[in-house]
Structure formats: structure tokens, C-alpha cells
């Protein structure tokens, strides 16, 4: 298939960016979206031009490194997949594809399609853990956990930290990301001990870093490649309220 591409090019964090048009031809429908970009980049390098910078690593939908706002949607037109797992069969021959970086104040562009998502790490550093050190912990089976709770915790823990939720949200809210971690730990006895402090610290950090408020549009859930549920946000709000009241 042949495609027209409109790609955001920005030489560095502080430079101005703009859309540049490219053309790719004879792309296999079985190629992945990133392989299509590889082909474009190989052509650019051969012409002596600067290839398009984009983040990626595992190409298996699990590391959360790939991003890309494709035709107005984080991770493109397919549901429940990351950009690296998006395949060209989801596009039509001759289509124009617009590719942008995540657009959110807390995620500044570094170059072209790459953004800085270290704000997510800072939120986890504020409290997204259980405060135990290595060694001296009880036998794993001495803490039985209801299977239903373990499964719900796993649903929340499946978040890959890609930032699509923030990119999808008109307020650039990080509520889905933060609530996934808060929920995972709140659902497990190991995490209960520090539940109050955790939710307060993580929410405070999120606000401090300039993420916006949640106005319940649920765009985050709709675009999440791992289908993390907004029920986590409700759970976090409850946790937050309880923490405040006690």
C-alpha cells in the first residue's frame, strides 16, 4: 500500500516544530506501524536526511516506550493496542496519516515524536511502592489473598505507563495512571498499611507536576492500550476521601 504521511518534526526541545509531508510506497499490510516508519527512516538516511525520532523498544506492547498520536488518536485507530502492535492492515491504501507526539504540558517534546515522560516516574517515587526493604519478609503463602482481589489488582497493575491517558485527555489529567497504581496496592493487604499516605502523596505530586483535573470524559479509558478501567479512578477518589477524613 502507498501512504501520505504528515509528521511533526521538531529539531529539539526548544526549537519550533512543524508538519512535514512524506510519502511511503509498497508497504506490506502485515508490517507494523513502526516498521513502516523504519522504512521511511531508512529512505531518509539514504538521502542524507535526518530520520524521524520516535520512542520504542520492546515492540511487543509491554514496555510502554512507544507513543505517537496517529490520526488524532493515541496509539492510532485500533483499540487496545500500542503503536508498536498496530499493523498497517488497519489503514487504507492511499490514506493520509497524521503523526504527532503526545501533546501535554507535563510531557515536553524532546525531538520530533519523542517526549519526556519522567513526570510519571516522579509520581511513583512519591509513593507508588510498599515501604519494605530487601529481606526479612514473611513466607509468600502466609498472606492469602482473595483471588478476585488479586485479579483486580492485576488488572490495574497491567498499566504500562505509556501516557496515552494523558495524551487523550483534554485536561492532560494523569488520573488513570495514578489510580491504577493506587488501586493495585489498595486492593492487596501488603499495600493497605500505607494506603492513606500513598494516595495523598501521589495525588499531591500529580497536581504539583501540572497534570490537569479529571472531568469524567473517560477518553483515557477509551484510548488505553491495556484497557485500564476508570473504576480505578473511582476507587482512588474513595481512598483519597477516606485518607482526608481520618
Amino acid at each position: 500500500m502507498d501512504l501520505k504521511l504528515k509528521i511533526w518534526r521538531q529539531p529539539s526541545a526548544h526549537a519550533d516544530g512543524k508538519f512535514v509531508d512524506y510519502q511511503v510506497t509498497k508497504i506490506s499490510k502485515d508490517a507494523s506501524f513502526l516498521e513502516m516508519l523504519d522504512i521511511l527512516n531508512e529512505e531518509l538516511v539514504n538521502k542524507g536526511e535526518d530520520p524521524v525520532a520516535f520512542d520504542h523498544d520492546c515492540r511487543e506492547g509491554i514496555c510502554g516506550m512507544c507513543s505517537l498520536f496517529i490520526n488524532g488518536r493515541p496509539h492510532g485507530p485500533d483499540n487496545a493496542v500500542t503503536t508498536c502492535q498496530l499493523h498497517m492492515r488497519k489503514f487504507k491504501d492511499g490514506e493520509t496519516v497524521t503523526i504527532e507526539p503526545w501533546r501535554a504540558k507535563p510531557f515536553p517534546v524532546l525531538k520530533d515524536l519523542m517526549v519526556d515522560r519522567s513526570a510519571f516516574d516522579e509520581i511513583i517515587q512519591a509513593g507508588g511502592f510498599v515501604s519494605i526493604a530487601t529481606g526479612g519478609v514473611p513466607d509468600a503463602n502466609s498472606i492469602p489473598i482473595r483471588k478476585q482481589n488479586a485479579d483486580l489488582a492485576m488488572d490495574a497493575a497491567a498499566c504500562i505507563g505509556c501516557g496515552a491517558c494523558v495524551a487523550a485527555c483534554k485536561n492532560a489529567s494523569a488520573m488513570l495512571f495514578v489510580s491504577a497504581k493506587v488501586s493495585q496496592l489498595a486492593l492487596l493487604p501488603q499495600g493497605k498499611v500505607e494506603a492513606k499516605e500513598r494516595v495523598q502523596k501521589m495525588v499531591a505530586k500529580m497536581d504539583e507536576l501540572g497534570f490537569g483535573n479529571c472531568t469524567n470524559t473517560y477518553a483515557c479509558e477509551a484510548e488505553c492500550p491495556k484497557e485500564i478501567s476508570v473504576t480505578n479512578i473511582a476507587r482512588m477518589n474513595r481512598e483519597f476521601l477516606v485518607a482526608k477524613l481520618s
Binding site: 530487601t134 519478609v137 509468600a140 488479586a150
Partner: peptide, 13 residues
Amino acid sequence: IDQCVAQGVPFAR
């Protein structure tokens, strides 16, 4: 396994 469970790793149950 003990360490990971204590950290809140949601192993299958």
C-alpha cells in the same frame, strides 16, 4: 517469591 509478594506483585492465585 517472598520478596516480590511483599512488594505487592500480583501473582496468580
